[in-house]
Design a protein around this nucleic acid. Structure first.
Length: 646
RNA sequence: GCCGUUGUAGCUCAGGGGUAGAGCACUUCCUUGGUAAGGAAGAGGUCAGGGGUUCAAAUCCCCUCAACGGCUCCA
């Protein structure tokens, strides 16, 4: 008999050779029907494998992330089986589960595979799923594995096998399909009840652009048909929040092919929103001891030779601007740091001056590859809410802490809760690509991690993601369709102070080198506004929204009174517009609701006589009658409470 | 940059080898209204750009550009 510990702390005795699936059946028939895999002593394995003695077992179902990914991994095999049957001779590469579903990279060898082919693949997959074919695991020797795939002529699998140790190679077979696979898999294909191929895309073999581009087929499966329907509805909902769609509908920004791709034009309402965000941050930064500076949009090529950016990114930048005479060369500013270094160098600095914090909403231009451009999140011209802090090494930790506070204040004010702090450190194997002393790096990496923990951030450490000049702390946020974007960032830099020979005189009357911290709480105005739009589905908080109030006269006879109300509100710093179109109130309300205006004020005979307004809140409806002054006070109080210090 | 898809009015889209369509938006007129669409008329397009095939191209073919979904990249 074997003793098996379950997550609730209980221990069960089962016969030797019992699998997790059989264990489930002993607990309940219903559970057994839902078990997709098992976590045995912390490892996810096939539910059909015999359990070892004294194992701690967690039965995984669709409600567990590992259960989901097991189903999707098995679904990838199912899709491969279907594809191979429909397109004999194709070569399969890899097919892992991903966050939402799975994909398989396939070499169709010149044959086209498009969306039109999806339905027949889906149909065959469901047909194969209904056969309830078991996933059978088999350990094979390296030699046997090689001969199997040599016979099949699958160079991708052979390449994968090359990197594996003999003795750790396993095959999984379901129906007529066998794949090289570590597993685990669901018991049989019958668990897959709904299938949807999502899209096809190109993907380089092994993620290297020098390699052949394969066809990546994305798909998702579910254990219930209803869940697929639900998922598709969810996707549709997410698309409604897309900042590109809302930006157009709300008149925030525009792209013109004539101006150039990746170069956003900010429309009046978008500019209003963006300016308000800038002002908000400017006030917060002033309190935090930042000094605003302004630098030009171009800088001499020499500046970037000094910074090292020319050598590293020169070829991939907008190319230098040549002057008509003299042969001078200037570059569009791709970052603000070198300029700020020269501001530091404008006068001799003492340790008493540090930390110095120079801030600038600095517009920069980067030549992004055409395929990279994406709405406002990836553009060629954008404005960083940049600042550089110059401090002594023993001030680093405190300064990072203050930056984190600033980022958290912003996120809290805007109600961003779902973010992850990514700590980017050196690649432990490849240390020579980083510049700076080992001692400083260690201090810096430790400082970032310590502060992040002290501030209670939910962090994930990524090795090898540090910049070559220092470690980073990035605040990652998701967009409407689940893509991750970096917003706020804090980066330590030991490189530029060296290259620009930055110095301060210490208490010991000796010259010392300061540490430089790059930071941008928003990241860039463009990306931040994009994420903000998606975050609040275009319904901006009252303090930020361009149009807080719309006044709706019941008929043209009350347009004058409506304008008077607007003027009164304007004096109280409330942003109000009058809808004086020749339409009925119902229509005006509809328009205002669709434009996501927070407050609507209906005014007519009654209001004009009583010097009042009939207020209505978006999504909530009629609020009743207010005097103009009371309404203004209410709005201003609401705004003030949103911007309270934390 | 690479793979794939798409490009028709300001917006959302239908159409499709034989002189360009709808709804919304816009302009004018009627209507003067009370909490999510009042009515009528009008204006608006070199069908992304260029080249080709054809008696005839928005439609078929090729190239370019852009957008979209990914890959690679992201100072």
């Amino acid at each position: 008999m074997l003793n098996i510990s379950l997550p609730d702390g209980s221990v069960r005795s089962v016969e030797e050779g019992t699998s997790a699936l059989q264990l489930a059946a002993q607990i309940s028939e219903g559970l057994a029907r839902n078990v997709l895999a098992a976590e045995v002593n912390g490892n996810v394995v096939d539910a059909s494998r015999p359990l070892p003695e004294n194992a701690t077992v967690k039965l995984l179902t669709w409600n567990d992330d590992n259960g989901k990914s097991t189903l999707w991994h098995s679904s990838a095999h199912l899709m491969a089986e279907a594809l191979e049957s429909l397109y004999p001779g194709i070569k399969l590469a890899i097919g892992p589960p991903i966050e939402n579903g799975f994909y398989y990279d396939v070499d169709f060898e010149g044959k086209a595979f498009t969306q039109e082919d999806f339905s027949k693949v889906e149909k065959l997959m469901l047909e194969l799923a209904r056969q309830k074919n078991e996933f059978v695991r088999k350990e094979v020797s390296k030699a046997d594995a090689i001969s199997h795939f040599t016979e099949k002529g699958d160079q991708y699998k052979l390449e994968l096998i090359e990197g594996l140790e003999d003795g750790e190679i396993t095959f999984y077979t379901q129906g007529n399909f066998t794949d090289l696979c570590r597993g685990p898999h669901i018991p049989n294909t019958g668990f897959i009840k709904a299938v949807k191929l999502m899209n096809v895309a190109g993907a380089y073999w092994r993620g290297d652009e020098k390699n052949k581009m394969l066809t990546r087929v994305y798909a998702i499966t579910f254990p219930k048909a209803a869940e697929l329907e639900e998922y598709l509805v969810q996707l549709e909902e997410a698309k409604k929040r897309d900042h590109r769609k809302l930006g157009k509908e709300l008149g925030l920004f525009h792209f013109s092919q004539k101006v150039g791709s990746g170069l956003p034009l900010w429309l009046p309402k978008g500019t209003d929103l963006r300016t308000r965000l800038q002002n908000f941050l400017t006030v917060a930064q002033k309190k935090a001891g930042y000094q605003p500076v302004i630098t030009p949009h171009i800088g001499s090529k020499e500046l970037y030779e000094t910074s090292g950016h020319w050598a590293k990114y020169g070829a991939d930048s907008f190319q230098p601007i040549h002057t008509p005479q003299e042969g001078e060369m200037y570059m569009l500013k791709p970052m603000n740091c070198p300029h700020h270094c020269e501001i530091y160098n404008a006068e001799p600095r003492s340790y008493k001056d540090l930390p110095l914090r120079f801030s600038e909403f600095g517009t920069v231009y980067r030549y992004e590859q055409t395929g990279e451009l994406h709405g406002l999140t990836r553009v060629r011209g954008f404005t960083q809410d940049d600042a550089h802090i110059f401090c002594m090494q023993d001030q680093v930790k405190e300064e990072i802490g203050k930056v984190i506070d600033l980022v958290l204040y912003i996120f809290k004010t805007l109600n961003f809760q779902d973010f992850l702090a990514q700590v980017s450190l050196r690649d432990p194997i490849n240390r020579e690509k980083y510049i700076g002393t080992e001692e400083n790096w260690e201090k810096a990496e430790l400082a970032i991690q310590e502060v992040a923990n002290e501030k209670g951030l939910r962090t994930v450490v990524e090795y090898g993601e540090a910049a070559f000049y220092g470690p980073k702390l990035d605040f990652m946020v998701r967009d409407a369709i689940g893509r991750k974007w970096q917003l706020g960032t804090v980066q330590l830099d030991y490189n530029l102070p060296e290259r620009f020979q930055l110095e301060y005189t210490g208490a010991d009357n000796q010259k010392h080198r300061p540490v430089m911290i790059h930071r941008a709480p928003f990241g860039s105005m463009e990306r931040f506004v994009a994420i903000l739009i998606e975050h609040c589905a275009g319904q901006f908080p009252l303090w930020l929204t361009p149009e807080q109030v719309r006044i709706l006269p019941v008929s043209e006879k009350y347009n004058e009174y409506a304008k008077k109300v607007a003027n009164t509100l304007e004096i109280s710093d409330i942003r109000a517009l009058v809808d004086d179109t020749n339409e009925k109130v119902g229509k005006k309300i509809r328009e205002a609701e669709l434009a996501k205006v927070t407050y609507m004020l209906v005014v007519g005979e009654n209001e004009m006589l009583a010097n009042s307004v009939s207020a209505r809140k978006k999504g909530e409806g009629d609020l009743g009658v207010f005097s103009i002054e009371d309404f203004a006070t209410m709005v201003n109080d609401e705004v003030a409470s949103m911007l309270k210090e934390i």
